[in-house]
Design a protein around this nucleic acid. Structure first.
Lengths: 162, 162
DNA sequence: CAGAACAAGTTGAGACTTCAACAGATTCCG
DNA sequence: CGGAATCTGTTGAAGTCTCAACTTGTTCTG
């Protein structure tokens, strides 16, 4: 007894798919061109830059960027090669690792941010009316809640500070 | 003179990012679990199934799935190995290749569709009010138009039938 | 305290995507 | 006609992501 999508829903879904796909492709391409990193890596730098001491536990960083521990580990290794992030071991939990944003990493982020933000603005906020922006937020938060809930029930870290 | 995002825009953008990311991750994981293919490959099967003779030129298929020719070529190779798609050469243009959905491919799609649609419904349409669904469509189409325009100006095929 | 259960992070293999380079076919124009 | 420009599709290498297996360290419990 599948609840198929009707004509209208189909159109909605496909428009949404196309829009998000083109949007993220575009933003990704811009970041890749400017700073040679994918958007996921940019996010990592952003989170670190906003954290006290520009430092986060790997697991917290993974949670806050919605990425798996494995993905994050690979990503940090790559960012370490670029000299933008460093690993330190956590003094209070010998299993733990801290990721620290270096000065070079901060500089790279500072250099990438203006273009990226401009991209977000021109592709997302500029085309929308203020009312639509409000709707976008409402919609996103409505969809987000149950997804986050599902995800948490499947066992993610709860975020203990080091 | 970067037009930074204000507090409100920041929240909107991050909610949107998180929601779409979790949503697509989730749908992808469901498809991977059920039919062992990524969402992009599912899309390819869908487009072929809707086409006359279940057949499309590679370039049209690439355009309609918003994927690069290269990506499509790799994907079709993989789907060919699974026995779900076949390549034929185009009778009227010797450069051309046709991708044809096989019976096995159609069966695979028919088997994957119910679960996938149910996923879309439960993660997207169920949480939203009818009014929000209408907004989602409006928003998506608003964002889509300029993105498509940009893309076309960068030179995509215009879609000639074989 | 010992052992089981659990948590943090890493690793390697395999799958997918991107990018640039390429080969073959067609079209355009002098 | 004939060569340049264009178009179609493929290929291989390099990068990223996923998944499962694993190591090490911590916590829980009898």
């Amino acid at each position: 007894m599948t609840r198929w999508l009707d004509e209208e829903e189909q159109r909605t879904w496909r428009a949404f798919l196309s829009a998000t796909q083109l949007l993220f492709d575009q933003l990704d391409r811009e970041l890749q061109r400017d700073e040679k990193i994918p958007h996921a890596y940019y996010e990592i730098l952003v989170r670190l830059s906003e954290s006290p001491e520009r430092t986060l536990r790997m697991s917290q960083l993974a949670d806050s960027t919605l990425s798996s521990r494995s993905r994050l580990s690979h990503a940090v290794s790559r960012l370490e090669e670029s000299g933008w992030v460093e690993r330190r071991s956590c003094p209070t939990d010998r299993r733990g690792q801290l990721a620290v944003l270096t000065d070079a990493g901060f500089a790279a982020l500072a250099s990438a941010a203006p273009t990226h933000v401009e991209g977000v603005r021109s592709h997302v906020f500029d085309p929308l009316t203020p009312e639509q922006v409000a709707q976008l937020r409402e919609l996103s938060e409505t969809l987000l809640a149950p997804l986050v809930h599902d995800r948490e029930s499947k066992g993610q870290s709860t975020g203990v500070v080091c």
